[in-house]
Design a protein around this nucleic acid. Structure first.
Lengths: 230, 230
DNA sequence: TCTAAAACAGACCGGTTGTCCTGTTTTGTC
DNA sequence: GACAAAACAGGACAACCGGTCTGTTTTAGA
């Protein structure tokens, strides 16, 4: 965690190696983590520079303004996180409902193992930045839309396979995204991931996969899908 | 909206009138609005002072620190907003599900009439402040808990009246709060309140009030409950 | 009326923030 | 190897932020 590029007395001047992509990645790593933990406004560029071991000149070279940095974090990192956590698992799932359940449980398990809750990157930044700047808002809205679309598409696939005939794909997707987002908000505030499981149970108990009451079907789905934790 | 306490030449010195409660209220009004629109960190005390027409001395007299001001906004204003928007309508509703529907529709209608979405005060501040300070977090968590309890209590009352026998009150409340919170997050980011209606429809289509499929029951509930818009 | 506390005014300060600017070093290209 | 552009270093700076401080006015109570 401390400095390691101090030139020792043995070799007075280390030769510099330009690594623009590596440096850019290092900055994005630190910014992503800091935005997640402290938020955008509470993260100063000075802190980020110190944490990344990067000088002001280098930072400014890759990201002219703080807004540009945040936009890059949103478009590259936050979008990728949603892709990894939700979109890919949803594509890989057998059905939409199984996918939703798998993600909820995987995230809940990951948070419980981690011991604390930092919340959803997308929602964290969306709340802080949506009204601040139209560019922020549009970038964040696009990620929300892609997220919803991935779920709705899965419902559509289910319907083409003869399932979920009574379900409105768009609305189902909206509810899935909303309940996850809100549950994460509560989990973050209470520092307790249990509410994620509460919401999932309520969602499934209230919404059986077909007309069956869905009481005996629930347990055996739990082990079907293993997923890499975030 | 401009200054009105400039002393005109007619009477050289206006007599000052101490109004501690009024001044405190004025500051809280401005702070509440600014936190809602710009967030905590993006709201500077200088802006608040200017907007409220209050000097630094007066502000500091009532709120020694910015944190104290935010805590007052949370405990007095945000809690009151949740009380007015959710808890009171929930107590007044015939059943829990009717109450949830009434609030969703009232808020959606209010937002559509307003033309823009600033989001949920509680969730806005919760996302920005939960991880920054334990005092903030606890205050916000308490409001979430009261919100959930109000809904769960209503489900309990329904159950004592013979309804909702298969429903878990805690989980139902968690899902209602979560889906509302998440829907508001999306509505704020997309600047479109329609997602609130999507979530409500999905919630009710998926969760019929009893074993009936809930297709014909939905429409006639819509006019039953009128509620004061936020 | 006298007095002390509360209420308010307004200047002030140290620290921080984001950005800019001027150099220096590295690197790809002819 | 010459050279221009990219990559990086690091200081400088003006604006701003939150908090403090001193002083004045109002108000309540004896």
């Amino acid at each position: 965690m401390s400095a390691e590029n101090k030139s020792p007395a043995t070799r007075r001047r280390r030769k510099r190696t330009n690594d623009p992509e590596g440096m850019r990645k290092k900055v994005l790593d630190v910014a992503e983590a800091s935005f997640q933990a402290r938020g955008y406004h509470a993260s100063s560029l000075g802190d980020l520079m110190a944490a990344a071991g990067v000088t002001g000149g280098a930072l400014h070279h890759h990201f002219p303004t703080k807004k540009a940095l945040a936009l890059a974090v949103i478009e590259e990192r936050v979008a990728a996180a949603v892709e990894e956590t939700w979109i890919a698992p949803m594509r890989a799932a057998g059905t939409a409902r199984e996918g939703v359940r798998a993600v909820f449980e995987a995230v809940a398990a990951g948070l419980e193992h981690q011991g604390f809750v930092r919340g959803c990157q997308l929602n964290n930044l969306a709340h802080e930045l949506s009204l601040t700047d139209p560019d922020f808002r549009m970038a964040l809205a696009g990620i929300f839309a892609a997220w919803r679309k991935a779920i709705a598409d899965k419902v559509g696939a289910d319907q083409q396979a003869g399932r979920e005939q009574g379900t409105d794909a768009q609305r189902f997707a909206a509810l899935a995204v909303a309940s996850y987002s809100g549950a994460m908000s509560m989990a973050k505030t209470a520092q307790d991931a249990g509410v994620l499981r509460d919401c999932l149970e309520a969602l499934e108990r209230a919404a059986p996969s077909s007309s069956q009451s869905g009481l005996a079907v629930k347990r055996r789905r739990r082990v079907l899908l293993r997923q890499k934790t975030l």
